[in-house]
Design a protein around this nucleic acid. Structure first.
Length: 244
DNA sequence: TCCAATGTTTCGCC
DNA sequence: GGGCGAAACATTGG
């Protein structure tokens, strides 16, 4: 569920509710649920891993974290609903997610150019941000949502494998061309992820994530928890160059 | 059966 | 107050 492309698919699946009016809101989220009553769902957007339900004057941000889920027109019997929105025809239910209300103009809350899946994605800005953190390891930088909003651990592992760069490489030591390639591939792979996930063949296309062997050279892939983030990394010491 | 894990925020300590 | 790490949250597949 959680990486950016998966959230785009959630958005797509909820399109039938856009333009509809909320008749009832419920659930155990701490937000004031009165605010939804008789309000029209105007639009659904995403910013990286954030799902954004837009109403007049405010937006609800849903973040699925690791384990969040949702159902459409049905409920999970054995789960508490975090936030449910009932419409004239049908309902949306969110579970085990983070829910927050954002007031006013969404554009004051989000820099769309940081979202790797956005039309407004700006790789030059990503480049400039990376320049300011030359000591950072690339495995941490790729997970930085201010730079690569929407990139998660799977995308991180796959991009570094595809670009032949070791996760513990220092950003400032990676040659400019190669760093540019990583930036480009973060976006490119995110779209591949989206289409593979849509067709239910994402896992089949993983080359590094959770893999045992390098399909290029046959070496055993290293599994470790590098960097500040200490997130699971899979990489080939033979094919992925360490810059430091 | 158990454990790790597609994520992020908050809290406590130094 | 900053930096760091642990804890918290909560679900599912391997």
């Amino acid at each position: 569920m959680p990486e950016g492309p998966s959230i785009v698919l959630v958005k797509e699946s909820l399109q039938p509710f856009v333009g509809k009016v909320v008749l009832q809101a419920y659930g155990n989220s701490k937000i004031d649920q009165q605010i939804f009553l008789n309000k029209r769902l105007l639009d659904i957007k995403t910013w990286g891993k954030h799902l954004l339900l837009c109403f007049k004057g405010f937006t609800v941000r849903v973040h699925f974290l690791m384990f969040g889920s949702y159902t459409v027109n049905q409920r999970k019997e054995d789960r508490l609903v975090r936030l449910g929105l009932k419409f004239n025809r049908g309902e949306i239910n969110f579970y085990a997610c983070s829910v927050k209300v954002l007031d006013g103009d969404l554009n004051t809350h989000y820099d769309w150019s940081a979202d790797v899946l956005s039309d407004e994605w700006d790789k030059k800005k990503a480049r400039a941000k990376l320049k300011k953190m030359s000591e950072e390891l690339i495995c941490d930088a790729l997970l930085n949502q201010d730079i690569f909003s929407g990139v998660g651990n799977i995308i991180k592992n796959e991009v570094l494998y595809r670009m032949n760069v070791h996760p513990e490489s220092r950003v400032g030591e990676i040659p400019a061309i190669r760093l540019n390639n990583i930036i480009d591939d973060a976006r490119m792979y995110s779209f591949l992820f989206l289409e593979w996930k849509r067709k239910n063949e994402l896992k089949r296309n993983w080359q590094a994530h959770t893999k045992k062997f390098c399909e290029n050279c046959g070496s055993v892939l290293i599994k470790s928890y590098p960097g500040k983030n200490k997130r699971r990394s899979f990489f080939c010491e033979n094919c992925q160059k360490l810059y430091r």
